[in-house]
């Protein structure tokens, strides 16, 4: 194998450099700030201009069909604001003209032959249903 060197990288075979690197590890000055301690949320900011309001949390929870208690609405609003504040980190990334990667494999559509295969017996399919009636799943009232 050929030893390659990237611009800006150092050769670690140099023993005095090794020590230097060990000493530097864990200290921040040479490295980008991107870890836990640097993203402490400033309370004033969240209080002043929330990313998501309590009403929005209620609305999104309704969209997701998840009932929340009053205390949870309060707690989630606070926690979601902290998390969203961190998420806004992505705004700093330069992504103009960069295509999105939805999936790492370049899959388009995967087809199989349209042949009838053995399927799950009805009894097995119904086995885990909390409520069933005459061979059907029993759903809550819809209309």
């Amino acid at each position: 194998m050929i030893e390659a060197r990237l611009p800006g990288t150092r050769n670690l075979h140099n023993n005095h450099l090794r020590q230097d690197i060990i000493n530097r590890s864990g200290k921040s000055h040479a490295y980008p700030n991107w870890c836990a301690r640097t993203v402490q949320v400033k309370d004033e900011k969240v209080m002043g201009k929330p990313y998501i309001s309590r009403r929005e949390v209620e609305h999104i929870a309704w969209l997701a069909h998840i009932e929340l208690t009053e205390e949870e609405k309060e707690l989630f609003t606070k926690q979601l604001n902290e998390i969203l504040e961190y998420f806004r980190k992505i705004d700093e990334a330069e992504t103009e003209g960069v295509p999105p990667t939805y999936h790492v494999l370049d899959l388009v559509n995967v087809y199989r032959e349209d042949e009838v295969e053995e399927s799950l017996p009805k009894g097995d399919a119904l086995k885990n249903a909390p409520k069933k009636e005459r061979g059907f799943f029993k759903a809550p009232k819809i209309i």
Binding site: I60, L63, L80, I90, A93
Partner: peptide
């Protein structure tokens, strides 16, 4: 529940480009 709610938010109209699509572009980077 927290993750479902946040995911629903990131995919909802008005935030999709800002969060989800942006994250997918970063994935390319």
């Amino acid at each position: 529940r927290r993750r479902i709610i946040l995911g629903t938010y990131a995919l909802s109209a008005g935030y999709y480009d800002q969060y989800y699509l942006k994250a997918l572009r970063i994935r390319t980077l």
